[in-house]
């Protein structure tokens, strides 16, 4: 019944999944994504204050950053690439229950949910076809494994490192400034990655709905 939602309500669902379920209550690896975003934030803070970045008193080095970037980029890549394939092939389009921008929302939701959430869909999309069975299960594998493996690698690598003593120049994670920076990173990373496709889906649909245009 998600399909019956107005465009902006659907947008909120999509956005929450696209930023990696970082808001608690999401089904999936929400804490993982949030921790990885925190690592990214500390990296950016490190660049800004000209110190090698630290997180929880452990030094962040190229290996951790590589893993964090894989974690943050792999899911969107899987969602967008599979989504693109679905949008440009007639097999992908033939499953749609709604045409126009709402159709893009249906496809985006299916892949965003299989990659990062519980694998539900805007129920109108007929995901029982060979095409969607294969693509959604692949996107499920990519979404799960590229989140869990890199983050375990980060954990293992950080566990082996020595503690860095807290100094006067250490940027700690228990201050409001960190919270704002973290929110900024989450919104920018998720927003910039998905903004184009969200514009073509729910945002465009919202304006069409206001104009009374139907498909």
């Amino acid at each position: 019944m998600h399909d019956s939602l107005t465009p902006l309500s659907g947008f909120v669902l999509l956005f929450n999944m696209c930023v990696g379920e970082v808001i608690f209550g999401g089904v999936g690896a929400g804490l993982i994504t949030l921790l990885v975003n925190a690592v990214l934030t500390m990296f950016i803070v490190g660049l800004m204050i000209g110190r090698s970045p630290e997180f929880l008193a452990k030094k962040l080095e190229p290996f951790e950053m590589l893993m964090a970037v894989i974690c943050v980029l792999a899911t969107p890549m899987s969602v967008l690439i599979f989504g693109c394939i679905a949008v440009v092939t007639s097999t992908g389009l033939s499953s749609l229950n709604n045409l126009g921008p709402h159709g893009i929302s249906e496809i985006l939701y299916a892949f965003a949910s299989t990659s990062g959430n519980n694998g539900s869909a805007f129920a109108g999309l007929n995901a029982g076809t060979v095409f969607y069975t294969l693509t959604t299960s692949l996107s499920m594998l990519v979404g799960r494994l590229t989140t869990i493996i890199p983050v375990l690698a980060i954990a293992g690598s950080l566990a082996k490192k020595k503690f860095v003593p807290v100094g006067s120049a250490t940027f700690t994670t228990d201050v409001p400034l960190f919270v704002w920076l973290l929110i900024g990173v989450v919104v920018l990373v998720g927003g910039l990655t998905y903004f184009p496709v969200l514009t073509l889906g729910p945002i465009l649909e919202h304006f069409f709905m206001g104009m009374g245009k139907t498909f």
Binding site: L5, S105, T214
Partner: peptide
């Protein structure tokens, strides 16, 4: 249980 699953810009829904 189930709904029409037609979005607000669906001509079929209208």
């Amino acid at each position: 249980s189930g709904a029409s699953n037609l979005g607000p810009t669906s001509r079929k829904l209208i």
